[in-house]
Amino acid sequence: MNTYIIGYDLDKPGQDYTHLIEEIKKIGTWWHCLDSTWLVRSALSAKTIRDQIVKLMDKNDKVLVAKLSGEAAWFGFDKNCNDWLLKNIA
């Protein structure tokens, strides 16, 4: 399993992206402690994850899915967010 970062810009104001968020949660074990950033632990590839969620986005939205290397540093998260990072990245 790999841990991926998913970052997006949803450029259309007033859109309901509930289905997009539900789809991201289905991909694997997830972390969502930043507004437009998710970390997901999954056996899927970055391309497969992208293809799975992009179909729920508008054409002017943007998304990045990238595999994390295992090295990370962070600051300011609560215990739950911090613990997930320690378990799934570090």
Rank of each mutant, 00 (worst) to 15 (best):
N2H: 13
D9F: 10
T48N: 10
K47V: 13
E22G: 06
R50A: 05
D35Q: 12
W30L: 02
A46D: 04
G14T: 05
L44Y: 12
L68M: 10
L39T: 08
W74V: 01
N88F: 03
K55E: 00
W38R: 06
L64P: 01
S42N: 06
K62D: 08
L68D: 05
T29E: 14
I6H: 05
N88D: 01
L85H: 02
T18G: 03
N88P: 02
G70M: 03
V65Q: 02
A66T: 09
L10M: 09
T37P: 03
M1K: 11
K59E: 15
L64R: 06
Y8W: 08
T48K: 12
G7L: 08
G76Q: 01
C33I: 00
W31N: 06
Y4K: 03
S45L: 11
W38C: 04
I24V: 11
K59W: 11
E71Q: 12
D11T: 14
V54C: 10
E23Y: 05
I24Y: 02
H19M: 12
F75H: 11
A90Y: 05
I24E: 00
D16T: 08
L34T: 08
N82D: 15
R41D: 09
T37M: 07
C33D: 09
S69G: 13
D11R: 15
D83L: 06
S36D: 00
L86T: 00
K62G: 04
